[in-house]
Design a protein around this nucleic acid. Sequence first.
DNA 1: AACGGTGCTTTGAACGTTCAAGATGGCTTA
DNA 2: TAAGCCATCTTGAACGTTCAAAGCACCGTT
Lengths: 344, 344
Amino acid sequence: MQGPVSRWRSTRPTLESVAREAAVSRQTVSNVLNAPHLVSEETRRRVEDVIARTGYRPVRAAQTLRTRRSYLIAVGLQTPAEDRGEVGHGFLHALTERAQARGYRTLVYTAGNDKSEISTYENLLSDYDLDGFVLTGTHTGDERTAWLSRHHIPFVTFGRPWGSAARHSWADVDGAAGIRAATDHLIGLGHHRVAFLGWPEGSGVGEDRRAGWEVACRAAALPTSGLAARMDNSFAAGRSACAELLQADDPPTAFVGVSDVIALGAWSELAARGLQPGPQAAVVGFDDSAAAALAGLSSVAQPLSEVASACLDCLQKLQEHADGPAGSPDEVLLEPRLILRSSA
Amino acid sequence: MQGPVSRWRSTRPTLESVAREAAVSRQTVSNVLNAPHLVSEETRRRVEDVIARTGYRPVRAAQTLRTRRSYLIAVGLQTPAEDRGEVGHGFLHALTERAQARGYRTLVYTAGNDKSEISTYENLLSDYDLDGFVLTGTHTGDERTAWLSRHHIPFVTFGRPWGSAARHSWADVDGAAGIRAATDHLIGLGHHRVAFLGWPEGSGVGEDRRAGWEVACRAAALPTSGLAARMDNSFAAGRSACAELLQADDPPTAFVGVSDVIALGAWSELAARGLQPGPQAAVVGFDDSAAAALAGLSSVAQPLSEVASACLDCLQKLQEHADGPAGSPDEVLLEPRLILRSSA
DNA sequence: AACGGTGCTTTGAACGTTCAAGATGGCTTA
DNA sequence: TAAGCCATCTTGAACGTTCAAAGCACCGTT
């Protein structure tokens, strides 16, 4: 226990004080921490003792000032409305946790559109010497990635650069494979007409997932025509799309949702019609959101921790070769896994 | 446009370079920024011109090293599972946005329990010279607030220190008032039996909200007995509790939920029974989550931006009087507002 | 005996800012 | 006219670290 005044503000050990106490020089203490191979066994131990005893920790601000590295990575916060699937928050959590384990910290910022986000970059970069950015919600013609590339700022995106020719590191989840696994599962349960509830055209992620469903159906020689619907990402849309599909002459018995919200909407419609999970009704969603877990909806879970680790790997690699040759960007595609609950 | 090498790494204006160009000294430039009243009108303008032209911005690391202030505030991230109501994420967003507007940045961290969170404090404080902490999810016997107080670290909590004698600054939302407004609204619609779907005993927040319902009913001379239920915070629990209350001889016609999830559960039960919103069925939730908005559930919205601003006010006040007398902590209670949708 | 190398250690400077103190010059006041 | 004051501006030091260079002792070669 320290005195009444916080130890953080008053006397705290410095390189100098540790050095004095261990009867060595500043630099030797620094070497013990940053380049132990340069220090003799004996001195090293002596210095380490003092460090342990005094609880010395280097001051980040001084290190940053000297080295231009902050051990800080920046992540944009999606607006609560955008983050319907909670993936954003889940990813932020995972990223922060993994980053912490590597000695990095996470700085968050908010931004309305690409333009204002870019000006936020400028501010963040001038103020703190960020080690890199992790972007989410990349879209076609993303100005942010272009700007960051142009300025040689290390960054990774969670999500492939859909359609654009942008060359940068990314980590992503194989949505097609996830949806395919979900569809295969439903087919395995005996369903012969599996519908896909998707997003409106134009979303790379959406088309990818849809392709997974199509491939699975084709592979099982099952029909797809008349079984795909497009809608906004909402509960109500999922519900009414489901209702509509059920009107058909030969209605689907199983539904794969491009997202949990949509799948939950469909599932509520099925429940409203008294259709219990089983041969006549099954639903799988995507994202494994808290709502899905609560409602017992089977869902495709994104491996957020792995994505986070992959992003950090990319950043560290970029960091190391900061001044070297550009090298080819890393591209990591991870397999999601199907979480089975009562809905399928 | 800068050269091929990022401007952030190569030559960037410093106090020194600006000073040279404006033909003044370092300190004068510093004064222009930090104490303009010490500088003559003419010099000030000249220096400001150079600053604008060169795009000079002070390096945070150097400032921090000198002043021990980082303009960084730390916020703990709730685990995605805890953040069911999405309040956590919404608050983080609001806080980050307000902080940004004041020139502060938000650092996030994750922590499992109080103990590990405290050790995270130690790490964060040694590494970065944080300006303060914003805590959420305070509970009775919170070790975190005790530790922070003991070490004289500036901090605020979003949430009152329920039951504990802890003396620290906080900002909170008047849940009782919010629920009371919701109940009053339902009564105004003509409902005579308004039920309350609450959390299990022992939660300060939960009891506070419940009290709001009770007061409203009493004030309108309406019954409360047999109309309150306690349950876990889940959709399913809300639904079955609703079903159970509807079995009564004289069943409620309106429901106030302590949270959106619970309220949504109740609403789905009503829908399943074919009860349309109106004289025989009405529901209001709490938190104004995205799910509520999507489902058309009326809900009590927490003024997250105002809470965030209040938290920042508290922190800045603590910061200013850091070495002065402790002073009495700020306590800010904000009114939530009722968002009306189709459910009531 | 001089030389080059290697393992370990120290020294001075630098990063970019702010603080504390001092310098300058004009104006007021005794 | 000297003293004091104020407004304005400058200087040197300090914050705590790392970098670049050098020093020293010891070794094996020549």
